[in-house]
Computed example of a mutant assay.
Amino acid sequence: MADDYRRQGFELERRIFELDIKCSSLRTEKQDDDYLQNASAILDKLKSYYRQGGESSNLSKVLQDYTQVILDITFYEENKLVDQEFPEDCSPFKIQQLLQDLTEPEVLAGRLAPTQEVQSMLGLELLECLYWRRGALLYMYCHTLHQRKQWIKKNKDTFLKEGVRYLMRMLQVRNSVKLNDGVVLHDTATASFLSEGIFSDTHLLTMMYIGEMCFWAVKYEDCSADTMDRKEDRLQFRDIGTQILNKYVLACEGPLQGQGWNTENAKEILSILQ
């Protein structure tokens, strides 16, 4: 067991030094990028920690810092893809690479601390962010290319379904607050949000992204080639999109009315999904 822990600890250390090399290389492209600068500063701290013979008692903090580095570096790489409007020749490979990078902190946390819950090692906000970033990346990819009907048909399972799955996981990281569990909230709007599992603007945006991706999946489905699995997929996309967008509309036209949240697109999608 001790040998396994040391071996896995070396794996994390190795990845940190590999990320440092990668970050240095990316900074030659854009030295003043805020995200790369932040990643570089954290990496310097992590390298110093290991050079001083880092202690296992700090594993959670090391994993959290490592996760932040991953988030910063991949954010820079994602922005490059978005700015280039997802070049067809390299985007599928690059996206899979980014998804793998954003999955790694969760995998490492599970391996290095098998008796601990991943969310207790990484923290709720970082775990949410890892799911959000994977789902949002796939949303942006599909948003850029969804007008190409054949592309959607070909890649629905790979990108749309996975994107919805990641975004749904993001919404499920925190449990909604049950108002009858001895929780006293004097602000009824806050109480309404928490009871629905809405903890931030990002949660609301996630709902809209899920609704749009479900709509694209249904809109571009080839009904002429229906199989039982495809029919079930289409029903699942309809059900998820309808449920999530109804919750989105209720929040935006209820407690958030007048706060700048638009529901026109959500209502239009609902009229098609329902």
Score class of each variant (00 low, 15 high):
84 Q>T: 10
193 F>Y: 12
5 Y>W: 09
143 H>P: 01
159 F>P: 08
109 A>W: 01
172 Q>V: 14
151 W>L: 15
126 L>H: 05
37 Q>P: 01
176 S>M: 10
225 A>F: 02
4 D>A: 14
33 D>T: 09
203 H>K: 03
138 L>S: 05
91 S>G: 13
24 S>H: 05
137 L>I: 06
61 K>L: 12
43 L>Y: 00
258 G>L: 10
107 V>W: 00
22 K>I: 11
5 Y>A: 15
137 L>F: 04
44 D>Q: 14
143 H>L: 12
65 D>F: 14
90 C>T: 15
178 K>V: 14
195 S>Y: 07
249 V>I: 15
2 A>N: 08
179 L>K: 01
69 V>M: 02
63 L>E: 03
201 D>V: 11
231 K>R: 13
273 L>V: 13
186 H>Q: 15
241 G>M: 06
2 A>V: 15
17 F>Q: 05
263 T>I: 11
89 D>A: 11
120 S>E: 14
198 I>T: 05
58 N>W: 02
192 S>N: 09
174 R>V: 13
133 R>A: 03
44 D>P: 03
149 K>W: 10
229 D>K: 07
36 L>M: 02
36 L>T: 01
107 V>H: 03
237 F>N: 02
123 G>N: 05
225 A>T: 14
33 D>I: 11
246 N>G: 13
77 E>C: 11
170 M>E: 09
169 R>P: 06
220 Y>W: 11
32 D>S: 13
141 Y>R: 03
41 A>M: 03
227 T>H: 04
172 Q>H: 15
132 W>E: 04
53 G>R: 09
187 D>P: 06
136 A>W: 03
159 F>T: 11
94 K>M: 13
56 S>N: 14
173 V>C: 05
245 L>C: 05
152 I>G: 01
155 N>F: 03
174 R>F: 11
211 G>S: 04
70 I>W: 00
181 D>R: 10
75 F>R: 03
37 Q>S: 15
270 L>T: 08
211 G>C: 07
226 D>A: 09
188 T>Q: 12
50 Y>I: 12
133 R>Y: 04
